[in-house]
C-alpha cells in the first residue's frame, strides 16, 4: 500500500486544502478500485470514491494518527459501499462502463479486449454473488494484501468473524466459478460450428 508523507497528512489535518488534494491524488486508485470491486459499476464507483474522500475530509480531525491512513480511508470506503449494497439489494454489472486499467495494451486487439472484458465481467459477477461484508473481506485480502487482523479493524469485526467470512466467501467463489465455467463451456460448445 502507498505510504503518505506524514507532513502532507499533518497539513491536511490543519485544514490545508492543497495537501488534501495531494491525498486524493495519492489514494484515488486504491479507493476507486475498492469501490469498483464492491459495486461493479464504474459510475457508481466514481460516486462512492468521491463520497469517501468527502467524508474523510469532513472527519479528518477525528483520524487517529496511530492507525495507518490507508486503512482508515479504505474503512470509510468499505462501509459506504456496504451500505450502498444493502440499499440496492440487486447488484448489476455494466461492462460498457469499464474503467481504465493499470497498464493499457499499446496494440489494440479486439479479441483480446473482449476476452479481458469477459474475464473482468466474470470476476465481478463472482464477487457480486457474495454478501457485502464477505465481498469487502475478500477484496481487502486479495487486492490489498490485508491480514485478517487488518481486515477486522477495517470492517470493525472480530478476527474470528473475518476468518469465518473469508472461509465462506472462498467456498462460495470456488463453487460459483465451477458452475460459471461449466455454463460457459456448454455455451461455447453450442455456438461451435459443426464444420470445425
Amino acid at each position: 500500500m502507498i505510504n503518505l508523507d506524514a507532513a502532507v497528512l499533518r497539513q491536511a489535518i490543519q485544514g490545508d486544502e492543497e495537501a488534501f488534494t495531494r491525498i486524493v491524488e495519492t489514494y484515488q486508485r486504491p479507493v476507486f478500485n475498492l469501490c469498483y470491486r464492491m459495486l461493479g459499476q464504474a459510475q457508481e464507483a466514481e460516486d462512492a470514491a468521491q463520497e469517501t474522500f468527502w467524508r474523510a475530509y469532513q472527519h479528518l480531525r477525528r483520524y487517529d494518527q496511530q492507525r495507518p491512513f490507508a486503512t482508515w480511508l479504505l474503512s470509510i470506503a468499505a462501509h459506504y459501499c456496504i451500505d450502498q449494497q444493502r440499499k440496492r439489494r440487486l447488484p448489476t454489472l455494466a461492462l460498457e462502463l469499464m474503467p481504465d486499467e493499470d497498464a493499457p495494451d499499446p496494440a489494440p486487439n479486439p479479441e483480446r479486449v473482449f476476452a479481458q472484458l469477459e474475464e473482468k465481467g466474470q470476476l465481478q459477477s463472482l464477487l457480486a454473488r457474495l454478501g457485502p461484508q464477505d465481498r469487502a473481506a475478500i477484496i481487502l485480502r486479495y487486492w490489498y494484501e490485508f491480514s485478517e487482523d487488518e481486515i477486522a479493524k477495517t470492517l470493525q469485526l472480530t478476527v474470528s468473524a473475518v476468518k469465518s467470512r473469508l472461509h465462506r466467501a472462498r467456498k462460495e467463489l470456488a463453487l460459483s466459478w465451477e458452475s460459471q465455467s461449466t455454463a460457459s463451456l456448454a455455451e461455447r460448445r453450442k455456438n461451435e460450428s459443426p464444420a470445425l
Binding site: 476507486f32 464507483a45 474503467p99 475478500i138 486479495y142 470456488a174 465451477e178
Partner: peptide, 17 residues
C-alpha cells in the same frame, strides 16, 4: 476451482478512475 479463482483475483489489476 479455488486455486483458479485465487489466481484470477491475484491477476486482476487495480482499476483506476
Amino acid at each position: 476451482k479455488w486455486q483458479e479463482v485465487r489466481l484470477e483475483m491475484r491477476a486482476a489489476p487495480m482499476v483506476a478512475p
